[in-house]
Amino acid sequence: MSLLAAILAGMFLAAGAIFVLIGSFGLWRLPDFYTRLHAAGITDTLGLSLMLVGMMFLGGWTLVTVKLVFIMLLILLTSPTATHAVANAAYTVGLRPFGVPPEDLAEKDR
């Protein structure tokens, strides 16, 4: 593995880990379910992609990289669906969002 690839891998891994940590921290810190959805989104998109790209640099041009690409595509395609499903389930039963002005909500939820 060349030095450049090693440095790039290290940078991507570090950045990804930082974003994963920020996302998890947000999941703990934010006040309600709907805002926490966004924090989980950080982990699922940028944190995950950056870490996997870093690992691709470690793997080089091999089948390992192909598998990493598959994992990344799979999660990027399925995570919005899962997020929407959770959000939709919560909204359907009328879980009230924190801090949203009342004129935004449907009649039944006010």
Binding site: Y34, L37, H38, A39, G41, I42, T45, L46, L76, S79, P80, T81, T83, H84, A87, N88, A90, Y91, T92
Partner: peptide
């Protein structure tokens, strides 16, 4: 469109 909105942190399609 709906998935793009959800995939972007900060906005989530709820219904």
């Amino acid at each position: 469109y709906a998935n793009s909105i959800t995939l972007t942190p900060g906005t989530v399609t709820v219904d």
